[in-house]
Every structure is written in C-alpha cells, then in structure tokens.
Amino acid sequence: MTQAGWRKLTEWPLAIAAAVFLVAYSYEVISEPDGKFAEVVIAATWLVFLIDYVINLVLAKPRWRWFYTHLLDLAIVVLPMLRPLRLLRLVTLLAILNRTAGAAFRGRVIIYAAGASTLLVYVAGLAVLDAERGAGGSIQTLGDALWWAFVTITTVGYGDYFPVTPAGQFVAVGVMIGGIALIGVSPQHSLRGSSNVSGRRRL
C-alpha cells in the first residue's frame, strides 16, 4: 500500500478518533470525574494516532524528508503526558475539515473558517482551563476560558483574563498563531475559488 492510499483509507477514522478524544477530554476537564474512564479513552485515541504516525513514516518516500516536514505530527504522538498539549491531536480535525469542506468556493470558505474558528476557540478554552484551574489566576471556569480564547483569537486582548501558568501561556501562543493562520487561510481560499470560477467561465 502507498502512503496516499493509507491516508485516504484512514482519513475519517482519524477524524472520528479525534472527535472521541475531544468528547473524553471535555468530560474530564468540565466534570472532573473521580473515575479513570476518560483517561482510558484518551490513551486509546493516542494509540490510534501513534500507529498512524508509524505507518505513515514507514510508507513515506523519501522517509527522511517526510519526517522533518511533519514534526507537528511527531509532537502529537510524543507529548501525550502533557495534558494541555494533548489537544494537538485535534489539529487532525482542521485538516479533515479543510479537505472535505466541499468543492464550491463559497461553501469552502464559510465552512472552513467558521468550523476551524469555533473548534480552535473551544479546544483552547478547554486546554487553558485544564492548565489554569486551581493556579490562582483569573481563568477558573469554562466561561472564563472560552471568553479568553475568543478574545485572544480575535486579537482584541482586553486583558481581563490571562493565563499565569507556563502551560497556559503555551496554549496562548498556540491560539495566537492559530488565529493568524486562520486569517491568512480565508484569503487564499477566496483567491483559489475566484480563479476556479474564472477558469470555468473562460471554458
């Protein structure tokens, strides 16, 4: 099997695994259960992504080039013990959303931008709450965390809520970079869609 064939075969299973991880992590952060069920589910999804990474590495040609151009994928599978960083696995959902948004220019921009922004705000809120709760900072509830994530991704930066832990600050850097990336993606989609439409008209 080729790497392209493997990626096509596993695209939706990986998206489902990432969604399961999101549900389990949400339950763990919001409900703070005493049991270990959520941890078991999270560990199982990590194993799925680990297997996928290893198979992609084996099938890649040239292998070394694929390795150093996919360092984020490596981070996704080697940092599972740092709880806020486990949300890196949800980057898979953004990639799936981008590939399956639809062929129409308008649908692609609206679905990608809205879906990616909403997902980024939510997972950033979970991650920063996980890092900050109990640390004595201003972010202590899910509402606080979601408001902080929304203000940060839009680059408004009121300063009423802010992370005080190193893990929370790391999440903040990721949200800032993600927000800038999303702003840059929409114009690219717009230009691509416009050129496609012009090409069809010329034909």
Score class of each variant (00 low, 15 high):
Arg83Ser: 09
Ser186Cys: 07
Ala43Phe: 00
Arg89Met: 15
Leu88Lys: 15
Tyr68Lys: 10
Ala18Phe: 04
Asp144Tyr: 12
Pro166Asp: 09
Ile111Arg: 15
Ile42Tyr: 03
Ile111Met: 11
Glu11Tyr: 01
Leu191Glu: 07
Gly157Arg: 09
Ala116Gln: 07
Ser186Ala: 15
Phe49Tyr: 01
Ile55Glu: 05
Leu97Ser: 10
Met81Thr: 11
Gly199Asp: 05
Val128Leu: 03
Thr10Leu: 09
Ile76Asn: 08
Tyr158Gln: 14
Gly174Ala: 05
Ala38Leu: 04
Ile30Gln: 08
Pro84His: 05
Tyr27Asp: 15
His189Arg: 01
Gln3Asp: 08
Leu47Glu: 04
Met1Leu: 11
Gly35His: 01
Met176Tyr: 14
Asp160Gln: 12
Pro163Met: 07
Tyr112Cys: 11
Ile96Tyr: 14
Arg192Met: 10
Gln169Asn: 10
Leu94Gln: 06
Ser195Trp: 06
Ala38Met: 09
Thr154Trp: 15
Val151Tyr: 07
Leu146Gly: 01
Ala60Trp: 00
Gln188Ala: 11
Val121Cys: 14
Gly35Asp: 15
Val77Pro: 07
Ser138Arg: 05
Gly35Phe: 00
Tyr122Thr: 03
Ser190Val: 09
Ala181Tyr: 04
Trp148Val: 03
Ala4Arg: 15
Val91Trp: 13
Met81Val: 08
Ile153Leu: 14
Lys36Gln: 14
Tyr68Ala: 05
Ala24Val: 01
Phe150Met: 06
Tyr53Asp: 00
Phe49Trp: 02
Leu57Ser: 04
Gly193Asp: 05
Thr69Pro: 00
Leu203Trp: 00
Ser186His: 03
Leu22His: 02
Leu94Met: 09
Ser190Tyr: 12
Glu132Ala: 08
Ala75Gly: 13
Tyr122Gln: 03
Tyr27Ser: 14
Arg192Ser: 14
Ala135Cys: 07
Leu57Lys: 02
Gly184Met: 06
Tyr112Gln: 04
Thr152Met: 13
Ala135His: 11
Asn56Gln: 12
Phe162Met: 14
Gln3Cys: 03
Pro33Ala: 02
Trp66Ala: 13
Gln3Ile: 10
Pro84Met: 10
Leu119Cys: 06
Trp64Gly: 07
Ser190Pro: 01
Ala124Cys: 10
Val156Asn: 08
Thr100Leu: 08
Leu142Arg: 00
Ala103Asp: 09
Leu94Tyr: 04
Val41Gln: 09
Thr141Tyr: 00
His70Gly: 10
Ser186Gly: 04
Ala43Thr: 07
Ala172Ser: 05
Gln169Cys: 06
Ser186Pro: 01
Thr45Gln: 12
Gly136Arg: 03
Gly136Trp: 12
Gln188Thr: 05
Ala135Thr: 12
Tyr122Cys: 03
